[in-house]
Amino acid sequence: MLKDITIGQYFPGHSSLHRLDPRIKIILTIVYIVLLFLVKNSAGFAVSILFLVVCYMVAKIPLKMILRSLKPIVPILIFTSALNVLFVSGDHPIFDWGVFHITQEGIYTAVTMSIRVLCLIAGSSLLTYTTSPIALTDAIERLLGPLKVLHFPVHELAMMMSIALRFIPTLIEETDKIMSAQKARGADLESGGLMQRARALIPILIPLFISAFRRAEELALAMECRCYHGGKGRTRMKQLHLGVVDGLACGVMVLTVGAVIALNFLPIPW
C-alpha cells in the first residue's frame, strides 16, 4: 500500500557512496542528469547505464528497491512513448494511417526518452537512497550558501525542506492509520466512480489535515522552547569535509563524461 512508496527513501548503509560528501553527491547527480542529455548514441547510453549499475552495486542497493522506485513512472512512460511512436514525423516511415505515422525517428525518440527518464529517476533515487535527509538538506544549504549575499533565505529554505522530508514517513503512517480506521467503519475506498471515490477521500483528508496542523503547531512550539530563531550564528555538529573518496568520485565522473562525449563522435547509425 502506501508504505511501498520508496522515492526519497533513505537506505542505510556504509558503502563508499554512503560516505561520500553529500555536496559532492548532489553536484555529481546533477552532472549525471546533464550527461544523460549529452548522450547521442547507443554506445553513450550503454556507458551511462553501466555507470549507474556500477554505482548501485557499490552502494549495495538491492535490485528490488530500484524496480519499486521505477514502478510509479511506468504508466507515464508508456503513455509518452506511445505518443512519440505515433506522432513524431520523420523521413523513414514504417507505417502510415491517417494522423498516425510510425517512423524510425519516432521509435528512436520513444526509446531514448524512456532510457533517459528511467536513468534520471534511478540516478536521483540513488542520491536519496545513499544520503540521509539531514545530510541532504545540510548539503543544499551549503551549496546555496553564496545566495545569502542576495538576502535569499537559504537557511529557512533548508529547514523547511528537512522538516518536510522528516514528516513524509510520519504522514504516510498517519494516512495508513486513518484509512484503516475509516475502513473499519465501512468506508468504501476501492469501488465507485470518480466522484464517489473523491468523496470517499473526505473522511481521510480532513483528519489528516487536522493532525498535520496539530503536528506543525507542536513542532513550532518545541523548536521555540529550544530557542530556535533562524540560522544566524548557528554552528553545526557535523562539519562537512572533502576527502580522498570525494576526489576519486569526481575523477570517475569526469572520465565518464569524457567517454560519453568521445563516443558521441563514433560513426554508428544510432
Binding site: 492509520k177 480506521a181 475502513k183 473499519a184 465501512g186 468504501d188 473526505i202 480532513i206 483528519p207
Partner: peptide, 19 residues
C-alpha cells in the same frame, strides 16, 4: 465489508479519525 460491520474495531487514539 460485512465482516467489518460485525467486528467493530476502535483504534488507538480514535479521536483523530473524527471528520
Amino acid at each position: 465489508r460485512q465482516v467489518r460491520f460485525n467486528v467493530g474495531l476502535v483504534f488507538q487514539y480514535p479521536e483523530y479519525q473524527l471528520f
